[in-house]
Structure formats: structure tokens, C-alpha cells
């Protein structure tokens, strides 16, 4: 009858319960309540949404614990929070506060330019970003219990999210069909742990849930990511930087559930008002691109 905390099944299982849902970025209790009322499966408590992080510049760190606490007290759905890549102490602080999931996130300024957190050491589960299967498998190897394709956060431009989701899906399919004797070279080429690739080949899919993130601004964007094989969607700036957050939030939730009901998505997209203003990716300087952070 002994209780085993933080096991792989418990950490990965938590993400499985989020499948088919929308996780929304919020910066205060009021936004968290709007997200919950709209049907979000979880909220990400932040000091600033990614588009404001871009605008503000400087070093982006873990949110003020007061904000995280305020959000945790405001809603009954799970609360996630972001720690900087490799910042062991920010992650431990968030774990001690009792957040339900930590995002080791490239949206914040990395604390370590060489190493990620050893996430298997923690009781709290982690989600990490990826752009391809090598990155995905390295994060799983470190103990990530959930993945999200990175996209380009805070741009309202879906193109990078699509690129990353297609890439991961295509590489999973390739590995699945590969013969056993080709797998080690593939592991070398991808920079992926061999054991993780073996698991992916055997199962025909990633061993953890993979959401889409970074650029979702409309119900149609969310549905597109589901169509491409995402297990669910993170929406950052897309909701609270739109003209009517309640409407956008609710429409994005519905479009995620019924992603192949195009008539419905058409209806949902009517009279939503203006979505967040987007950024053309080629207008970003190299150092403004968040997706390259992570190793």
C-alpha cells in the first residue's frame, strides 16, 4: 500500500489527461479565471506573455512567485509555470510552491547554454520544447514527461509551429519504418539517445504527449496543429493579445476538440474581432529568435 510519488507513469500520465485540450498563458488571477471558464485544461502562469517579453527585451526570468501563487489560488485546473533552461533553483522553487507542471522554456533567457535540467531528478513533471526528433529524444532522455513543438513564440505566426510539428512527425514515421540495423546511425545523425529511439520504433510513436506551441493565434491555427498530429495546443499571446479574449479562448477550445469540423470552425471564426497582430518571421533578427535556444 506504499505510495510511490513522481513515477514515470504518474508524470507522463498527467500530460495524457491534458490531451485534446488547450493550455493558456495567463499573467494574473482574472485571466486565469477567464481561461478556466472558457474550457482551458491548464494555465501557464507568467509575468508576461511571450509577445510582451519580446517587446520588453532584457533578461526574462521565472515569474514572480506572487503571480504564480495568485493564479494557483484562482483556479482548480492545473497550473504550469516556466523556469529558465538549466536553472535548477528556479525549477526547485516552482516545485516547492506546488505548481503542477514546469515548462523548461526557451521563451525565457537561458540560464545555462550547455546543459538542460536533469528532469528525472524532480517529482514534478516537465514539458520541454523541440524542433525535431533529436531534440525531442534528448529531452525525453533527461526526463521530460511532455513535449511541445517550439514554433516561434509571441509572433502570432503559425509557420514555425507547422515546420516543427511536420518535422517531428516525419522523423517518427521514418524511425518506425527503419530496420533495426539502421537505428544506431540514425541516433547518431539525429543526436538522439539510442534507447529512446528504440522505444519510439517499437511503439510507432513518441513515448510522451506532444503539444503544439509558438504562434497559434486563431481557432483555425489550433485546428491545423491538431490536424498535423498535435495532442493538444498551447496558446500564449494569442488569447489575451486579441481583441476579445473570452471569445478567442472559447473558440480555440472548441476548434481544438472538433478540429476536422470545418463548418463549425467557420462559424466559430465569425465575429471574433481582431486576432493578435502577427510578426513575419524573416523580420526577426537572429538573436530575437527564441526557437534556437536549447541544445
Amino acid at each position: 500500500m506504499e505510495r510511490q510519488l513522481g513515477t514515470e507513469i504518474v508524470k507522463r500520465g498527467m500530460a495524457q489527461m491534458q490531451k485534446g485540450g488547450v493550455i493558456m498563458d495567463v499573467v494574473n488571477a482574472e485571466q486565469a479565471r477567464i481561461a478556466e471558464a472558457s474550457g482551458a485544461v491548464a494555465v501557464m502562469a507568467l509575468e508576461r506573455v511571450p509577445s510582451d517579453i519580446r517587446a520588453a527585451g532584457g533578461v526574462a526570468r521565472m515569474a514572480d512567485p506572487r503571480i504564480v501563487e495568485e493564479v494557483m489560488n484562482a483556479v482548480t485546473i492545473p497550473v504550469m509555470a516556466k523556469a529558465r533552461i538549466g536553472h535548477i533553483v528556479e525549477a526547485r522553487v516552482l516545485e516547492a510552491m506546488g505548481v503542477d507542471y514546469i515548462d523548461e522554456s526557451e521563451v525565457l533567457t537561458p540560464a545555462d547554454e550547455e546543459f538542460h535540467l536533469l528532469k528525472s531528478d524532480f517529482t514534478v513533471p516537465f514539458v520541454c520544447g523541440c524542433r525535431d526528433l533529436g531534440e525531442a529524444a534528448r529531452r525525453i532522455g533527461e526526463g521530460a514527461s511532455m513535449l511541445r513543438t517550439k514554433g516561434e513564440p509571441g509572433t502570432g505566426n503559425i509557420v514555425e509551429a507547422v515546420r516543427h510539428m511536420r518535422k517531428v512527425q516525419a522523423q517518427v514515421r521514418k524511425v518506425t519504418l527503419m530496420s533495426d540495423d539502421e537505428l544506431m546511425t540514425e541516433a547518431k545523425n539525429l543526436g538522439a539517445p539510442y534507447e529512446i529511439l528504440k522505444q519510439i520504433k517499437a511503439a510507432g510513436k513518441l513515448p510522451v504527449v506532444n503539444f503544439a506551441a509558438g504562434g497559434v493565434a486563431t481557432p483555425a491555427d489550433a485546428a491545423l496543429m491538431m490536424e498535423l498530429g498535435a495532442d493538444g495546443v498551447f496558446v500564449g499571446s494569442g488569447i489575451f493579445k486579441s481583441e476579445s479574449p473570452e471569445k478567442f479562448a472559447s473558440a480555440i477550445v472548441q476548434a481544438t476538440t472538433y478540429y476536422n469540423d470545418y463548418e463549425l470552425i467557420g462559424k466559430l471564426s465569425k465575429e471574433l474581432g481582431t486576432p493578435m497582430k502577427g510578426i513575419e518571421i524573416s523580420k526577426l533578427n537572429q538573436e530575437e529568435r527564441m526557437q534556437e535556444r536549447g541544445w
Binding site: 506504499e2 510511490q4 510519488l5 513522481g6 507513469i9 498527467m14 482548480t76 503542477d100 507542471y101
Partner: peptide, 16 residues
């Protein structure tokens, strides 16, 4: 009672 055993870090496996 919802979330009766606590938040995620209190989530667990046990033999029943």
C-alpha cells in the same frame, strides 16, 4: 472531493 490527494507532486501509484 476534487483534487483530494493534493496537487500533481502528490500524485502517486499504489497497489490496491
Amino acid at each position: 472531493k476534487r483534487n483530494a490527494f493534493g496537487r500533481q507532486k502528490e500524485s502517486f501509484e499504489a497497489e490496491l
